[in-house]
Design a protein around this nucleic acid. Structure first.
Length: 211
DNA sequence: TGCCAGGCCGGGT
DNA sequence: ACCCGGCATGGC
């Protein structure tokens, strides 16, 4: 089990090479992307972020000062734009009030408290919180997503009932606690999921992990 | 045409 | 503690 988790990583890395995640120009952009990509194709998120950049709005206070309706207009391509506008502003309010709008100050908070606080923001669940912690703040926490679960399920390392924590613990107990490793591994799982492990297929298709 | 995409919340059991 | 409907655009 542990050795499978480790060998999957080496197989995936040698097959695909490093993924250079998260694709963004700043930690703040990572966070915005993490919220916007909830159940949404990444290419749609890029459009939304480009809309914000084109209007020079991709800053905490600039976004926070927009009305929900205006913000929703910019992020329209991501779908769920009304609810995501609210969710973004919920996070921005948290960032501004608690850390005076500074990602750097937020990143200096103690890990356990910060994760709990992020989960307390309406619209931030476990995957989004952990994506923020790992990819924006460089904290060593493993991100679990739909691809992660599906891939492990197809390879019978978990069963259908496995929840977020259970899957996360599987990685935590199998891997060296290392930001770079967690970053790369999750990115590789997404890559494999997109190219080999489709939802409607019962099995992964010529999955490089099976070699 | 219908299904899918890097979830999460709120109300009901 | 789970289960489920709702949220919505763009690509194939």
């Amino acid at each position: 089990m542990k050795s499978k988790i480790n060998s999957f990583y080496h197989k995936a890395l040698s097959y695909f090479g490093p993924q250079h995640w998260w694709p963004a120009d700043s930690p703040f952009e990572v966070i915005v992307g993490a919220i916007l990509t909830q159940n949404t194709n990444w290419s749609n998120v890029e459009r939304a972020i480009n809309n914000l950049k084109a209007s020079k709005l991709l800053y905490p206070r600039s976004l926070y000062n927009l009305t929900d309706r205006k913000l929703a207009k910019f992020i329209r391509p991501t779908g769920y734009f009304n609810i995501k506008a609210k969710r973004l502003k919920n996070f921005l309010k948290f960032l501004i009030r608690r850390y005076r709008g500074s990602i750097k100050r937020m990143s200096q908070a103690r890990f356990n408290g910060l994760r709990k606080d992020l989960l307390g923001v309406n619209g931030i669940g476990p995957e989004t919180a952990d994506s923020i912690l790992l990819y924006a703040l460089n904290k060593p926490v493993f991100v679990v997503d739909a691809y992660t679960k599906r891939i492990l399920l197809r390879h019978k390392l978990i069963n259908e009932t496995a929840g977020y924590e259970e899957i996360q613990n599987l990685f935590r107990h199998s891997l060296k606690r290392d930001v770079k490793l967690f970053n790369e591994y999750h990115a590789l799982l997404v890559r494999i999921g997109k190219e080999f492990c489709f939802k409607n297929n019962p099995k992964c298709l010529r999955c490089p992990l099976s070699e």
